[in-house]
Design a protein around this nucleic acid. Structure first.
Length: 355
DNA sequence: AAGCCGGGGAA
DNA sequence: TTCCCAGGCTT
């Protein structure tokens, strides 16, 4: 075990210098704010997806005070399509807390970072090690996969017992005297690069791996079995009816979702559990002739259930006299949709506006 | 300990 | 189709 611990960081760093990723947007410049933003965006989201969102976000809100001063609606609009919108709300709230508590800067302290919304142990460690070079171990999906294989750890890494074991190994590696102080940012990045490019979930490229000499899974031919996959479960199926209501000027009636629950605080088409409820909502808000134009169902999968949306479209509807714009209801021109936070499947549906 | 919370890439 | 990804928060 000790030899396996000792070789880990040096072998990894030697590989990183020639084969790691050195040109990611948040590495130039590698400021605490940019590292923080990237870490939040990268939670459960792949690098290729994040890059475009990251560039747009820092272009619009280049530093922490700018983020703290922005209205929530602007932050959600910049996040629109990226998913897990609690990340955006927590990011925004954390920025404002940093202005209150830390003079507008991120704190250089693990516990102070974890005390901010949206930052857990691994994200705090990633920020400290990459932005300041402080010695902290991370344990994200990449590191879990690398360590499970390298040490031959059985069991689903999401299980608390297994996760505790992996944290202990991650800490042991980060504490190695063979990991120089000056190399903590590269060490953290190197682990994520290895997991993302070589030690992938399917078909890892062990032939090119700098750690294969001491890797238990490679030695035992178990790379396809480790890490142990999550126990399976069948997801419940739900249905909903969706109303696409356009007035004579082509504006679309949008409704803001509640502050909690799925798609919290985002703007969507009015939605009901079934057709009768949808028709009832329609008749209390607008005069809409006929049954509407049925559009193809939209299938959308969440991590914990599947949702099938049944949209219908009406054109040239008239609002009832007592129904106008208010806090949670707006008539939105089709060219103004980009300014609002809208769930990806609804935005895709609405991209057909004007037809 | 388990559920909640998006969207997309990969096989 | 199925899995799961640079997770964290709530119950």
């Amino acid at each position: 075990m000790s030899a396996a611990i000792d070789r880990y960081a040096p072998d990894l760093l030697a590989w990183f210098d020639t084969h790691g990723r050195h040109d990611l947007p948040w590495q130039h410049p590698r400021t605490p704010y940019r590292v923080w933003l990237s870490e939040i965006m990268l939670q459960q989201t792949q690098v290729a997806t994040v890059i475009g969102y990251f560039d747009r976000f820092v272009d619009a809100l280049p530093d922490l005070p700018a983020l703290a001063a922005a209205p929530q609606e602007r932050v959600l609009a910049l996040w629109s399509g990226l998913g897990y919108y609690a990340r955006a709300r927590n990011l925004h709230a954390a920025a404002r807390l940093c202005v209150e508590r830390h003079d507008g800067d991120l704190p250089r302290d693990l516990d102070a970072l974890v005390a901010l919304p949206g930052i857990g142990r691994s994200t705090a460690a990633a920020i400290l090690s990459q932005a300041w070079g402080d010695r902290h171990a991370i344990l994200d999906g990449n590191v879990k996969r690398v360590l499970a294989r390298y040490h031959g750890i059985d069991g689903w890494p999401g299980a608390p017992r297994v996760e505790k074991q992996l944290w202990a190994l991650a800490d042991a590696h980060a504490s190695s005297p063979d990991l120089p102080d000056a190399r903590l940012p590269d060490y953290t990045q190197a682990q994520m690069d290895l997991g993302a490019t070589l030690c992938t979930r399917a078909r890892p490229t062990c032939l090119l791996c700098p750690l294969r000499g001491a890797c238990v899974a490679h030695r035992d031919g178990r790379t396809d079995d480790l890490p142990t996959p999550r126990p399976g479960k069948t997801l419940p199926q739900r249905e909903a009816d969706v109303l696409w209501l356009e007035d004579a000027r082509g504006r679309i009636l949008l409704q803001q979702r509640p502050q909690t629950g799925i798609w919290a605080a985002l703007w969507t088409l009015p939605q009901a559990e079934d057709r009768d409820a949808a028709d009832a909502w329609r008749d209390t808000h607008v005069h809409a002739p006929g049954d509407g134009e049925p559009l193809p169902p939209i299938a959308h999968a969440f991590s914990h259930y599947r949702l099938t949306l049944h949209p219908r479209r009406w054109r040239a509807v008239a609002p009832r006299d007592d129904v106008g714009d208010n806090d949670t209801l707006r008539w939105v021109p089709s060219d103004a949709l980009d300014t609002l936070g809208i769930p990806a499947p609804i935005r895709k549906l609405l991209s057909r506006a004007g037809e």
